[in-house]
Every structure is written in C-alpha cells, then in structure tokens.
Computed example of a mutant assay.
Amino acid sequence: MKIDLSGKTAIVTGSTGGIGLAIATGLARAGATVTIVGRTRARVDTALAALRETANRDDATGVVADVGTAEGCAALVAARPDADILVNNLGIYGAQEFFDIDDALWDGFWQVNVMSGVRLGRHYARGMRERGWGRIQYISSESALNIPTEMVHYGVSKAALQGLSRGLAKVLAGSGVTVNSILPGPTRTEGAVQMMADLAAERGVGAAEMETLFLAENRPSSLLRRFADPDEVAAMSVYIASPQASATTGAALRVEGGIVESIA
C-alpha cells in the first residue's frame, strides 16, 4: 500500500517530540505539508530541523502556541486558518494519588487534554466539511479504557477524548470528513524514558529491566511485552489520514500492545 498525501495540509499539536513528532514526520514522508505546533520557538525549530532531515522535506513549518489554552488555539487558527488533516496530539500526564488531585489539577488536565481538541475540532471541521474532505484524529490512550489508579484524572480526560471523537464523527456523518481516536499504550517517548530512568534509579536496576518491571506491575495484560516505538503509533495515524481509510470513522483504534482485555 502506498499512501500519498501530496497536496494535503496537516496540523499536528504537541509535535515537538515523541509521538507527535513521529506522526508529523510520517505525514510529511507521505507527502503532506505539515505544521509543527509547540510552546517554545526553540523546541519548534529543533523539531522542524529533525523533521526536514528525516523526511527529506523543506516545506514543513512551525507555529509557536500553547493550544492548551483558548488564547493559544486562537493563535494557531490565526496562523493556519485551514487544514486537511488535524491531529490533536497535545496531552499531559502524571501520577497523582486520587485524593490529592484538587480542582485546579483536574481543570488543568481538562483544558489541555480535552478542550484543546474541542476548540480546534470546532474550527477546522467547518472548513473540512465545506470542502467535502478531511481527517481529524484524537490521540487518546489505553488508559481511557483501562483507567490507572495512579492517574485517574488522566484516564478520565482520555476517555472524554474518545467521547468527543465519536460525537464529532456523528456530527460530520456523510460529509467526507472522518474522525477517529487512536489509543497508544506505553510508548518510548522522551517523557517515558525519563520516567523509567527515575524509577530505575530508585530501585537500583537498569532502564531496560525497569521497563519490563513496569509492564509486569502496572500493565500485566500487555501482549506486546515491551514499550512501543513512537513510529509504530505514527504508522496508524498516517494510515487513518490517508484516502485508503475513507470508510473508517467514529472508531477507537488501539496501538496499545493488547493491554485492554477486550476483543471489541
């Protein structure tokens, strides 16, 4: 299968590293003109340089905006009013005892993980519907279905993203615009690597052994038995952005290594 996104424009939020940068790079390799979005000029410029080198493309651009806020979403929309492909990848996570999660922290996760996708979906879906073609993706998590006790607020926000994705898909039914969510599992991003390194130091083991221990203790149902690579998640995103995926919409697509105990 050859995926050709030539002539398509794509926006990927939270794309200065990890899964977001892998998705942006994959879309660029497939021919899309990509906009990287991040909070600092330095991070955006570094990501653009990496994308241009890896994808061998010089037409990628960047927008500096904190789309975890209403003002940041407005800034992105002003800079890039239209897009054919929108990947809502921005998200935050962090372990916290449930009884210590105050209202401010709940709201912070809601604004970044959910409302960023609401605001951007609300804007870009209009143009896609008018043109009769578009792809909107929400990067959720297996934690949406397998709510972790150490990150209830995170799991709830990701579950909300799936509801948003399904609802928007129904709003856009028959329009030529598809909306889907993607559910990664533990993935070897910069943040995850650092977390494993910190845990390894605490327990006096190596980083590779810590990944194995983490999966055994926290995701024992994993069938993959390893952390995924960001490119493996990106492959699903690039496919769902493609013309070949035109009949897939309103779906929650899992790239979580079989952690979720369900055949549906």
Rank of each mutant, 00 (worst) to 15 (best):
K2G: 08
I3E: 00
D4T: 11
S6A: 14
T9H: 02
S15N: 15
S15V: 11
S15T: 08
T16I: 08
G17E: 08
G17N: 09
G18I: 09
L21A: 05
A22W: 15
A22P: 11
T25G: 07
G26D: 14
A28E: 05
A30L: 06
T35A: 13
R39T: 09
A42S: 11
A42I: 03
T46P: 02
T46S: 12
T46N: 07
T46M: 04
L48C: 10
A50Y: 07
E53S: 13
T54W: 01
R57N: 08
D58R: 12
A60S: 12
T61S: 12
V64Q: 01
V67N: 01
T69K: 03
C73Y: 02
A74M: 13
A75P: 03
A75Q: 13
A75F: 12
A78E: 08
A79F: 08
R80Q: 15
R80Y: 03
I85R: 08
I85L: 14
N88S: 13
L90F: 02
Y93M: 11
Y93R: 10
G94K: 12
Q96C: 12
L105P: 14
D107P: 01
G108T: 02
W110G: 07
M115W: 04
S116C: 09
R119W: 14
R122F: 09
Y124Q: 14
W133T: 15
Q137L: 15
S140H: 13
S140W: 11
S140G: 15
S140P: 15
S141W: 11
S141A: 10
A144G: 14
L145A: 12
L145W: 12
T149P: 00
M151A: 15
K158T: 14
K158L: 04
A159S: 14
A160N: 06
G163A: 07
G163L: 07
L164S: 08
R166G: 04
K170R: 14
K170G: 08
S175I: 06
G176K: 01
V177T: 09
T178A: 06
S181G: 09
P184G: 03
P186E: 07
R188D: 07
E190N: 04
A192L: 06
V193Q: 10
V193M: 10
V193P: 02
M195H: 11
M196H: 03
A200L: 04
E202G: 07
E202T: 14
R203G: 02
A208G: 01
E209H: 07
M210E: 15
T212Q: 06
L215V: 09
E217T: 01
S221R: 08
S222Y: 05
L223G: 04
L224E: 06
R225S: 09
R225Q: 12
R225C: 10
R225A: 13
F227R: 04
D229V: 07
D229C: 00
P230H: 06
D231H: 01
E232I: 03
E232T: 01
S237Q: 00
S237W: 00
V238A: 03
A241M: 09
Q244W: 00
A245E: 11
T249R: 01
L253K: 00
R254K: 07
R254C: 10
V255G: 05
G257S: 03
I259F: 05
I259Y: 08
I259V: 05
V260N: 01
S262C: 05
I263L: 06
